[in-house]
Design a protein around this nucleic acid. Structure first.
Lengths: 177, 177
DNA sequence: AGAGAATACATCGAAGTCGAGGTATTGCGG
DNA sequence: CCGCAATACCTCGACTTCGATGTATTCTCT
């Protein structure tokens, strides 16, 4: 997820680590903050894998910056990760939002629709949170207001997203015809 | 989150690891699966911390089971973790749902309402995903349908949850008066 | 002039998590 | 009776992540 976000933000324009961190914090930080000690090693991993290059520039304000630029290989890698997201990129909301944030970099509307359809399939799978044996329990069956809340919220979320997904998939399909 | 789920499920009744895994998988597994190699070490940690005890029972079907029971200290620890959730228990949806799933074990409605109010405060904080400098960008301002989707979905989710939270806090307040 | 915040990067050890693999038993279909 | 799925537990190494801490510079406020 972190690596995807780094590749995604750098796809548009070269940035230095500190700026990257601010953008990532805005994107997913209020839910799950990114520590600097996680970001810098991640940048190094990507550099080692030759997905990005760094150039030292005098800092505009303070210490010198390391301007990070994606290599051609790095650009291909982002498109690959967007076109073929892992299972958890689809199921985990944080990861999924990161995929969505950069999905426009996948230029083909058909490929974009394919990714949305995978999320759609996942959301359409019947899944509950609590079971009585094999039988999924519905919100109305709980005395517990908090468990009822979980199901209520999950249902509202999933309906909003399903509506958006269906609409967007349809418009990608007609747009590309 | 894992430890909270273990403590939560065992609070109701003693279970063995395999059964625990199935319940945790039902609760959060479709979003983020729990590997056995994560669960068993977690059980050992809790055992070492004397929050739970194990007793070997002949397996009903196959191998012998290790029946796990919370100690008095373990029960206190669950209540403590529910009453004083960490920042990320409040902000991270997976963790938050886990807190909600067991919040009924906090017997005092006032304490329950306090926890809900912390989530309420978090959701009421103004937070966007994308910024133009310091100015948060609204859904309508994007050409990108995917980023627009992120904001649309996040808004719907947050509104559904806010409504539920306000209603539930109110009923906890009147109920305890 | 000095304190403190912001910029900008980095290392280290501790901890948690995962995937792959291993052990052993029971029950069911072919 | 053989293989396979399900039950039930476990270990190992690789990797990621985090919190704490360190370095150095510049700007702002007092």
């Amino acid at each position: 997820m972190l690596e995807l976000a780094i590749l995604g933000f750098l796809y548009d324009a070269p940035l230095h680590g500190y700026e990257l961190r601010k953008r990532i914090t805005a994107l997913t930080g209020h839910v799950k903050p990114v520590a600097e000690s996680t970001l810098y090693p991640a940048i190094k991993r990507l550099e080692k894998a030759e997905l990005l290059e760094r150039a030292t520039r005098p800092g505009s304000v303070a210490a010198p910056r390391h301007e990070l630029t994606l290599t051609e290989e790095g650009r291909r890698e982002l498109r690959r990760r967007l076109a073929e997201p892992s299972r958890s990129d689809i199921t985990d909301e944080n990861r999924w939002f990161t995929v969505l944030a950069f999905l426009r970099h996948l230029e083909d509307p058909g490929a974009q629709a394919t990714v949305l359809r995978r999320r759609l399939a996942f959301l359409e799978e019947p899944a509950s949170f609590f079971y009585d044996g094999d039988r999924p329990l519905r919100a109305e069956e709980f005395d517990d207001p908090f468990r009822r809340g979980i199901l209520t919220i999950a249902r509202a979320t999933s309906e909003a997203e399903l509506a958006w997904l269906r609409e967007t998939v349809a418009s990608l399909d007609t747009g590309s015809r």
